[in-house]
Design a binder for these strands. Structure first.
Lengths: 370, 370
DNA sequence: AGCATCAGTGAATCCCGCC
DNA sequence: AGGCGGGATTCACTGATGC
């Protein structure tokens, strides 16, 4: 146990508490922690099994801790832990909560109703999400983080310059592109399986803690799991408190954090600085009205024509497909760069569609620099 | 007024209704529209101006229609228009709602509580967002769209292949990178100012309508504003209904949409899914002599064989059944696409039986045209 | 050693028509 | 309405194996 800055209360710093998180928080002194990071159950409510196209089975998140009988039950659970969380938070403290479309709207409304002040939401944009295997929806490629202060009057911590530096000198945006947790970072249990179904990447916590805390600050995670929050807090010289119901997770987290050496920031953010030339789908030219559906494109040699369709495909003489596919078919070639092959007419001249792509890339680059 | 497909009810197609949107929707027949796109007021809590609009701040979103006394008032408003929206929606219809962190969590929770079935959320990632001038938060670089069907059982429309084509052959993700509405697309009022504080880009609506509707579908927008939804719906050969309280917006929208030229019909034919192709029973290949009874089929990996029987079933090692059933049994898989699994021999090479199905489908398509 | 190939996997509300 | 069965459906990356 350690003393907080006032010396009036004792806090179990750098330890993992067991039990229900609301009860555990209620046992802590009020107004005592600087930041709360919470990754609560998402209440996925998955129905049947899901197979990949190669017939392998997707490992569903069907753990008992993610099961709730109804929205009402989930709301009761949510409002209770949020109430307890707000109580232990210092007046100038803040909370981050991560969720998916299954639960994040209910959680967000509960955060507002509990008296927190919404500072914004951040999108974790996954570089390598799991695809949608049945072709029935979009690739579920993001999760949402809610950022809120204890009250409207809170003087919350935001390290603006650190975020700007992390983003190569331009203001950090509300969408963060980071990979999911895989490889050696992903904790395994004794049986060689993943230890936790929803382990978050350290890069995500690194960015949250760097943005919203200062060295020495106290970070509490009421759904500690395998302790990513604690591990990154230790790396970054923050104090931490974890709460976790499952003994197996607590043991893994404790061992993991014991191995962490502080202040070695290694290469946690390398992926964020990787900036390939942005891919511009031809369809975007159509959506943006630079090319009209129904408009005719010509090959550079003028021998072939095709019409643009609303989804960014071309339709020509008995051929339908992408700009590359239709070009290749016309030329009897194995492949074709549609960007340089196809042209549109402007003021009587043939202009390659690549000029429009360049225009879009210039816009994007200009906005990044300015 | 026009008749819907049943002829039983009249719908005011391709027109803008005035008045409160919930009341206007309640005056329409139930189960009558295919899609609702809604961009409701954001409940921006600008301090000191909750009850009195300050017209001197022309650039702020502080018009009187965007002010609400409290979350409770906003929730009442939200739940009322969502109830009316769900009523007019066809059983297989869907709704899209766009919002920011100020309102989207409350709206999302209300959508779930109203009985809609959450299909996912989509992030509009802005290429050119307005920076955060005070350096106290992240650049607010995204907005959230919620996609939900009328009920869990709805057979909602999702043009998977068109979305994939629009994204150059890879599955469309839940984050969409598109610019905000600027330049000539941004409507001006008579005084040279921007006509509407939150005009959405046509590219965003293009993608929503292409993903979630078919040509001829009826799209309703209860917060029509300056009519982006109607303009894009007209371009894409969809029918539309707008509801808007402000006469100035209605006038601007009507003039704007009148100027829109729809795309050619052929340009609206979008890449189709295989599921839409006519079903060909395997037995038809046998009947037509393309495969002889007694002929042996091989699995693609060459490890399994089965004999074709006269009724179009296969018989292999202790297994009898359809091409799919025998394939699944051999692979120990829950299911199997026999069309791609089984091959026959021609001139020493293994050819998938799907090639013969394609031959039949090509013939059928030829007959349909002639 | 180094490169090519293959197998595995990740917070997932993931089919549909016919009888 | 529930059961049956045809048959449609995946992206990025990691780590192991093979040559």
């Amino acid at each position: 146990m350690a003393k907080d800055h006032s010396g009036a209360h004792a806090l179990p710093l750098d330890t993992i508490l067991s039990g229900d998180c609301a009860a555990a928080m209620d046992a802590l002194p009020e107004n005592s922690v600087d930041l709360i990071f919470a990754d609560p159950p998402y209440n996925l409510q998955l129905k049947g099994e899901l197979h990949r196209p190669n017939n392998s089975l997707v490992d569903a998140v069907d753990d008992h801790w993610d099961q709730f009988d109804s929205f009402a039950a989930y709301d009761t659970f949510t409002r209770d832990w949020l109430r307890a969380a707000r109580r232990v938070l210092k007046p100038d403290g803040a909370i981050w909560v991560i969720g998916s479309y299954h639960n994040v709207f209910r959680v967000g409304a509960a955060i507002q109703d509990a008296g927190f002040w919404m500072l914004g939401d951040v999108i974790w944009r996954k570089t390598n999400p799991m695809p949608n295997f049945r072709g029935k929806r979009f690739t579920n490629a993001h999760e949402t983080l809610i950022w809120a202060s204890k009250s409207e009057k809170s003087k919350y911590t935001f390290n603006y310059e650190a975020m700007k530096a992390l983003n190569e000198g331009v203001q950090m945006r509300s969408d963060w592109t980071l990979p999911i947790c895989t490889g050696h970072e992903r904790l395994k249990n004794g049986r060689g399986e993943k230890a936790h179904p929803t382990q978050k990447p350290e890069s995500l916590l690194h960015r949250v803690l760097l943005a919203a805390t200062n060295p020495g600050d106290i970070v509490l995670d009421p759904f500690f799991g395998t302790g990513t929050t604690g591990a990154v807090a230790k790396m970054l010289g923050r104090r931490w408190i974890g709460i976790e119901r499952e003994a197996e997770y607590r043991d893994l987290a404790a061992a993991r954090i014991a191995d962490v050496r502080p202040y070695e920031k290694t290469a946690l953010e390398v992926t964020a600085s990787k900036r390939a030339e942005p891919r511009v789908p031809f369809g975007q030219l159509v959506e943006r009205g630079m090319i009209r559906p129904g408009e005719e494109l010509l090959s550079g040699n003028g021998r072939h024509r095709a019409k643009v369709r609303a989804d960014g495909t071309l339709s020509g003489d008995g051929v339908k497909g992408s700009i590359h596919q239709v070009g290749a078919a016309y030329e009897g070639a194995p492949s074709c760069n549609g960007w340089t092959y196809w042209h549109f007419k402007r003021e009587g001249r043939r202009v390659p569609i690549d000029a429009l792509r360049q225009q879009i890339r210039d816009e994007m680059a200009g906005k990044r620099l300015s």
